[in-house]
Design a protein around this nucleic acid. Structure first.
Lengths: 342, 342
DNA sequence: CTGAAAGCGCTTACAG
DNA sequence: CTGAAAGCGCTTACAG
């Protein structure tokens, strides 16, 4: 049987209350007694029962991380692992734990309500939701603090951390234009996700700014998976693009693969620029020029901010935009720097 | 404020006890009253506070999934995402939630003890631990049910689910031998992990069975990352292998990449066989021949078994071995079937 | 089949 | 600075 506070109380000669206060860093405890208590705690490796603490204190120091399974790419795209890892690390630092929910459609409703009510988490991070995801609506009705990864399309009262996908997409397309490309296509992300839309809109606006003709044959929607990138690329080929802005590196990897299969050369025949700068971006042949978004930073900032929202509630929502950066490798025909695999 | 059992009791006209029983499927409840209670529950979308339930009932219906961060590969190798996903799905089916712990070295000790004591999880799944991982030792001391993904090297009382890595590695090497290769190297997994050792031992024994000479220059340890595979491959080249058994597809991907860079042709110059059959195995050029292990099955069986251990405790440990399969593509020079990207 | 009551292991006013 | 006591929201013998 695990030890209880009561045991420590008995062993230390202090009351349960005092022991509890000592453990939780309450300033109203004599340093001497704190030391005594903590020594016993240490020695016996006592850990308070978190369910009990949660009940009594009204918080559990665990965060929920919700990843909707609607997206095919979820577990082929390194985006999510990287995100999970960084959220988890940041939580560790603050002495929080993270509970991962993979929201499968069939279970979603059940999970949503459970999550709201169950008193098991103090707040939740929602990643990459669909535009019409009912989860957000459900969350706003409750008092549970939550933060989105990726801005909310319409409700400005919702906190989020995001990058400026629109501006970054423009940077990507501008890069292509500067290199002399004129028939620039795009393989977009899912248009039911805000991230997919923002990047697409950036593409559109960049084209317009340069007075480049818009050819709908050069615009194909992908779903962030490599295979969708490959398929889209093949379909686009007959319309002779000379460059393609692809909304994720995973899709770009698939596209480059398709191009090779079809006998095209990157970047000579077609320049490719991706988005994300995932670890394997420098492993494609040729290495992928892409937009780097600081995924680990996104995760840690989201966690950090949510914890702040929990511990120091305030009215105004947080809208945090993290920086993005063009990483030039060779898939666009401009080798500024050499990147090593190792 | 979320509703409580008390609210439902008042609203339904029954006692808290009866409501609780109705919700939890206790057979000792009149079907009529159960229906009435459940209707109100449904209508108000009441969800019991899980912290309270955990305290009172002694279980929370949440499982911990521990993934040690010692391994570099953790978030570049699709193995883990696939595993997380399948564990999570299986838990959903059984109405359990999963709590993901990424065990970072610095926090590990703290987490271990917390996990044991905190009453927040009913059991834990430990994935891919190091051979000397203290977590197992800590776990056996407690009453907390747990199961390993990957067999334990020494303690037969510990439950696990695994594949027969040793036998599968032999199958892989045999395949190379059958194709006429004689200077067969290997890039192993970390030798402080049982999975790395088992696959290496299979390689060794296969060589011996075929009376092939053992050349230590053709044996290099990797860490399951693509970049370690690439580096190892380059190092091995000067010793002229004509085939390499690589202990993970992620490393094999890196190795193939390295080979291309160095101007070698796969499989003509060097045949490559991997292990795992991750989704991108058919995306390498040429597509990778590999050993398929049923990662999603491993995850779901682990979860299912752990739940059984929790709900129907028994003395004997579970030792579950899942099947493995040679998938022939073209990286060994034997094209049995064509595999499409899409 | 149902209810009153005790209890799970903590936290936190309240009083001193 | 410390302790006795109430309470967090459930479950579960126990009695009927």
């Amino acid at each position: 049987m695990p030890l209880t506070l009561e045991d420590i109380a008995r062993l230390s000669g202090f009351s349960r209350s005092t022991v509890s206060r000592a453990i939780n860093g309450d300033p109203n405890v004599n340093e001497g007694t704190r030391k005594q208590v903590l020594e016993i705690v240490e020695q016996l490796n006592f850990q308070p029962n978190l369910a009990a603490r949660g009940l009594a204190a009204g918080h559990t120091k665990v965060l929920g991380l919700v990843i909707p399974m609607g997206v095919n790419a979820i577990f082929t795209d390194p985006f999510f692992p990287l995100l999970i890892q960084s959220v988890s690390s940041e939580c560790n630092v603050h002495d929080y734990s993270v509970m991962l929910w993979l929201a499968e459609p069939e279970y979603e409703r059940r999970m949503i309500s459970r999550m709201m009510y169950n008193g098991l988490v103090d707040g939740v991070i929602v990643s990459s939701m669909m535009m019409n995801d009912p989860i957000v609506e459900a969350l706003v009705k409750r008092k549970l603090p939550f933060i989105l990864i990726g801005r909310h399309p319409t409700n400005p009262n919702i906190s989020y951390v995001d990058v400026d996908n629109w501006a970054a997409a423009k940077v990507a397309v501008n890069h292509l234009v500067e290199l002399g490309r004129t028939r620039i296509g795009t393989i977009t992300g899912p248009q039911n996700m805000i991230v997919g839309r923002d990047r697409y809109q950036g593409y559109l606006d960049a084209l317009k700014e340069h007075n480049l003709e818009l050819d709908m044959n050069l615009i194909i929607e992908g779903d962030f998976t490599a295979s969708s990138g490959s398929k889209a690329m093949k379909k686009m080929l007959s319309y002779q693009p000379d460059a393609v802005f692809i909304a994720s590196d995973a899709m770009a990897g698939g596209a480059i693969h398709a191009l090779q299969e079809e006998g095209y050369t990157v970047p000579d025949d077609i320049a490719i620029i991706g988005f994300d700068d995932i670890p394997s971006a420098c492993l494609t042949i040729p290495p992928l020029t892409t937009i780097q978004q600081p995924i680990p930073l996104v995760g840690s900032v989201a966690a950090k901010t949510l914890i702040k929202m929990i511990e120091q509630p305030q009215e105004e929502p947080y809208h945090i935009i993290l920086p993005t950066k063009l990483v030039v490798r060779s898939s666009c025909g401009w080798q500024k720097e050499k990147t090593d695999v190792s």
